[in-house]
Design a protein around this nucleic acid. Structure first.
Lengths: 145, 145
DNA sequence: ATGAGTGCAAAGGCTTTGCATTAGG
DNA sequence: CCTAATGCAAAGCCTTTGCACTCAT
């Protein structure tokens, strides 16, 4: 997806929720789009000091509601945020349990396929309607090993 | 593992860290052992009002350090805690994105095996030493659907 | 007896909210 | 113009910490 296409789609999702794609929201999305891994609030504020903390929180919550942003939960103290997978690509996270670093990783297609079919049926057997899965690989990064 | 065996093993891990297996810690472990899903602090305090909040936090942190308890991170506001997998069994979580309910689930052995081998090599390719994986199934529970 | 563990209350730290100001349509 | 959005400051809420008391060895 091109960057203009990206912003067009995001603008659409916001308008559908009667929300505007303002300058600040655009800046926020641009930051997440550039980053190779999920960002937390200190990351975001230092990357763009013009952004106000409270607005960042509010806008991330809004963007999450309309399906543009996903909140990534780590063992870190701060929550991390990334663009939704349908705007980027399906991936998982390598999380360093020592320093909290997060890397994006992609699994082989055949493995993902086994996951999908298995998980949907397992969820169904428990009365759940599956919407997504979240797989995190926890370990030590090269620097902390 | 029998319940006496369980407490014996836990006592050993605590002593190895120069910690005592006190009455309060025993009560806490017993609660987690009985529960069919990870518990958060309000759960724990209402299940056993004799427990002091600060001690529960301190003891859960200690038990996590010595590998007896695992902190489960959900989208919930409170952290949840369960006994470590080597004291119970390897499993995953079905998390309701609406009400925050968490159910334990087990995947077929062959699927788990594919996971293990694939994930270790993927992590290694990124310079990570894998210690565990965390797979959560997100969706709507029967009640919220 | 003596240090670890506990419990109450207060402080920390991430996140959310109130409110006056600014900006988008 | 007029409401939504923003930014600063203050409040909330989960969690951690200080400190005196209690318990275990």
């Amino acid at each position: 997806m091109s960057t203009t296409e990206l912003h067009r789609v995001i603008g659409g999702r916001l308008r559908q929720a009667d929300q505007r794609y303002t300058y600040r929201r655009h800046q926020l999305v641009e930051l997440l789009y550039q980053a190779p891994h999920p960002m937390h609030i200190p990351d975001i504020l230092s990357a763009n000091p013009a952004l106000a903390q409270s607005s960042v929180y509010r806008n991330l919550a809004l963007l999450e509601q309309v399906g543009v942003v996903r909140r990534v939960i780590t063992s870190d103290q701060h929550a991390r945020y990334e663009l939704a997978e349908d705007l980027t690509h399906h991936h998982h996270h390598l999380i360093c349990t020592s320093c909290g670093a997060v890397h994006d990783v992609v699994l082989p297609d055949d493995v993902e396929h086994v996951f999908d079919t298995t998980l949907v049926s397992v969820a169904a057997a428990n009365g759940f309607t599956l919407s997504q899965h979240r797989l995190d690989l926890l370990g030590l990064c090269a620097g902390c090993r």
